[in-house]
C-alpha cells in the first residue's frame, strides 16, 4: 500500500508543478488578453470540469497510441510508448486538473486590476518586472488555491487513470484505484482504511488552504503590522 501512496503523491506533486509552470502564463493570457477567441480557449481549459473522465481518458489514449504523432515522438525520445506508464499518467493528469489550477490563478490576476500595473509602468518597471514584482505577489492567494485544488484533484483522479494508466502496482496504481480493487475483492477493511485516510486528507487540505489564504490576504509577507 505504501507504494501506492507514494505513486499517488508523486503523481499529484509532479502534475501540480507542471500545471503551475504551464498554467501561469496561460492564466495571465486569459486574464489580460483582449483577443476575441480568448473565451474559446477558456472553454477548452474548463472542459475537463464537465467532460466524463472516461471520455477524456479515451481521447488521451488514442492520442498517445504508438501510431499517433505524440506516441511516435515519445517512442523516438524514450523508446517507450506512453500508455500504462507514469509519464502517460502525468500527461493525463495535467489535462484532467488543468481548470482547477488555471481558473483560480486567472481570477487572482483579474482581481488585481489594471491600476497597480499601470502605476508600476509609470515607475519605469518593464513588463517582466511588473509581472514578477506586482502581479505574482498580488496573485499569491490564487496560486495557493490553484496548487491545492490541482494537487487534491489529482489525488482523487480515477477515470482517466483507469483508461490510460491501467493498474500496474509500483508503476501506475494509485489510491483511488486501489480502493476500487479492494471493494471488487470484497476487502472492505482495506477499502475503509484508504477511504477514511483520503477523507481526512481532503479535509485537512481544504482547512489548511482556507487558513493560509486568510493569512495571505491580510498583508505583505514581511507582515509589519505596527
Amino acid at each position: 500500500m505504501w507504494e501506492t501512496i507514494r505513486i499517488t503523491l508523486q503523481l499529484a506533486a509532479v502534475t501540480t508543478i507542471i500545471l503551475l509552470v504551464l498554467g501561469t502564463p496561460l492564466a495571465w493570457w486569459l486574464a489580460r488578453s483582449s483577443a476575441w477567441w480568448k473565451e474559446a480557449v477558456a472553454a477548452l481549459v474548463a472542459l475537463p470540469l464537465v467532460l466524463p473522465p472516461t471520455v477524456l481518458g479515451f481521447y488521451l489514449l488514442i492520442a498517445m497510441s504508438p501510431s499517433s504523432p505524440l506516441g511516435q515522438l515519445a517512442i523516438s525520445l524514450t523508446g517507450q510508448s506512453l500508455p500504462f506508464t507514469f509519464a502517460g499518467l502525468v500527461i493525463g493528469s495535467v489535462f484532467y486538473s488543468l481548470p482547477f489550477v488555471v481558473q483560480p490563478i486567472r481570477n487572482a490576476f483579474e482581481a488585481i486590476g489594471e491600476r497597480p500595473l499601470e502605476v508600476a509602468a509609470t515607475l519605469r518597471a518593464s513588463p517582466w518586472k511588473r509581472f514578477f514584482t506586482i502581479a505574482l505577489p498580488l496573485a499569491r492567494p490564487g496560486f495557493l488555491t490553484g496548487a491545492v485544488l490541482g494537487f487534491a484533484h489529482t489525488v482523487g483522479e480515477f477515470g482517466v487513470v483507469l483508461m490510460i494508466g491501467g493498474n500496474i502496482p509500483g508503476e501506475t496504481k494509485v489510491l483511488s484505484i486501489a480502493i476500487y480493487d479492494h471493494v471488487e475483492a470484497l476487502e472492505y477493511d482495506q477499502a475503509h482504511l484508504i477511504s477514511a485516510g483520503m477523507l481526512v486528507f481532503a479535509f485537512l487540505v481544504i482547512l489548511a488552504m482556507m487558513v493560509l489564504e486568510k493569512k495571505l490576504r491580510r498583508g505583505p509577507a514581511h507582515g509589519g503590522r505596527s
Partner: peptide, 30 residues
C-alpha cells in the same frame, strides 16, 4: 515609446500604493 521608458512621474487620483509592500518599498520601487 512605452510608459516605462518615459521619464514621467504619475500621481493617480487614488494613491494606488502597492498593498504588498511597506511605505519604504513603495517609495524606492521606481
Amino acid at each position: 515609446r512605452p510608459p516605462h521608458k518615459r521619464a514621467i512621474g504619475y500621481v493617480f487620483q487614488e494613491a494606488s500604493l502597492f498593498p504588498h509592500m511597506t511605505v519604504k518599498q513603495n517609495l524606492s520601487y521606481g
